[in-house]
């Protein structure tokens, strides 16, 4: 298989990208105004106290020196200690990561499901007056950003018609048997469907808020390429064989039409993960994004660095996975 050298090369470029991200984030959060030490000390602390604390955290050294110390620790797997939470950054970040991953994946599943439904329904209805109804739905979904959808959903299904939980990750009253932080995954494995349902009920609205704009983009692009594919000869030929419209769309047209959408989903999924920062805040969901905001507010430099590096790693890995699945779905690329 010629895939392995490609993957190796991609992993190598991923490392270079991560290094670049590390440099940029390290410099930027030290150059912008705001001092982590000032956040820690009570008003009226003496200069001597400030000096002492700065030396303790190494902020008295030059940025280059600080960077070299930090990066050599990182290479050994030590991302430093959070200033505000006084715990190792790596532990904190890894503890929150599963919550964000689960939320993002549920959001992605929702987005793909809604987007596919919109695109396929739109293709079925093409030429009829209901097609514009689908386009309108797409337009409305696209016209609001995820955090506004979040507020709208909170208002609708949290306040006016309280169907779902609007804050947190799981109901505090529940007894948690979990050994990992992947609550949803673990509850499904343990067949504790009551817990899964509670988790999903908490995740549903934040995930939906993130999913709606992405679903609209997927729906729009996929419908466009489906409509183009429906004119192709092999689709027509399949019709003459006696197959139904649904079969023709899903089995013949979709596998070919979905390729551009797949690339788009990859790119947009990284945006979606970025969106968790605000969405998790709005729904008090204890994930990485929520922690990122706290870290910024507290000027917790080591924690910010750790979170940003982790986000960058996720982004590049998602892109790698998308590229690989592209090759798997398109036989013409497989041997190229």
């Amino acid at each position: 298989m010629s895939l392995f050298p490609t993957i190796f090369l991609r992993l190598l470029t991923t490392l270079i990208t991560l290094f670049g991200v590390a440099v940029i984030i390290f410099v930027i959060i030290r150059v912008v105004p705001g001092n982590p030490i000032a956040m820690m000390l009570p008003p009226g602390a003496t200069d001597a106290d400030i000096q002492r604390l700065q030396a303790l955290y190494g902020f008295d050294k030059s940025i280059l020196e600080q960077f070299l110390i930090w990066i050599s620790d990182v290479v050994r797997g030590d991302f430093g200690t959070s200033i505000s939470l006084r715990q190792p950054v790596l532990n904190l970040v890894l503890e929150r990561l599963p919550a964000t991953l689960e939320l993002s994946i549920i959001a992605l599943i929702l987005a793909v499901a809604i987007g596919l439904t919109l695109a396929i329904t739109g293709t079925r209805l093409r030429g009829s007056r209901f097609e514009s109804l689908i386009d309108m739905t797409n337009g409305i979904a696209l016209s609001l950003p995820d955090f506004l959808w979040a507020l709208l959903l909170i208002l609708l299904f949290g306040v006016l018609w309280p169907l779902f939980h609007i804050s947190g990750r799981i109901s505090p009253a529940l007894d948690l048997p979990f050994t990992s932080q992947f609550y949803l995954f673990e509850s499904l494995l343990r067949l504790r469907l009551d817990l899964s349902l509670d988790l999903l009920s908490h995740m549903f609205m934040p995930a939906l808020a993130m999913a709606i704009p992405l679903a609209a983009i997927i729906g729009q692009l996929l419908k466009q390429s489906l409509k183009e594919t429906m004119h192709l000869d092999y689709v027509t030929l399949s019709r003459t064989k006696g197959y139904s419209e649904n079969h023709v769309i899903i089995r013949e047209a979709l596998p070919n039409a979905i390729l551009p959408t797949l690339t788009l989903i990859g790119v947009q999924f990284t945006f979606l993960i970025g969106g968790t920062v605000i969405i998790e805040r709005l729904f008090s969901y204890e994930g990485l994004g929520n922690m990122a905001i706290d870290a910024v507010i507290n000027r917790d430099l080591p924690l910010i660095q750790g979170i940003v590096i982790l986000f960058a790693l996720i982004f590049t890995l998602v892109n790698l996975i998308v590229d690989m699945s592209y090759a798997l779905l398109n036989p013409r690329l497989r041997h190229a």
């Binding site: 000869d233 030929l237 399949s238 003459t240 064989k241 006696g242 013949e252 070919n256």
Partner: peptide, 17 residues
């Protein structure tokens, strides 16, 4: 069940995937 089509352009009449 009772008819079949031999299409014009063999390059586009087979599903590439």
């Amino acid at each position: 069940a009772s008819t079949a089509l031999i299409p014009q352009d063999p390059l586009t009449a087979l599903n590439p995937s």
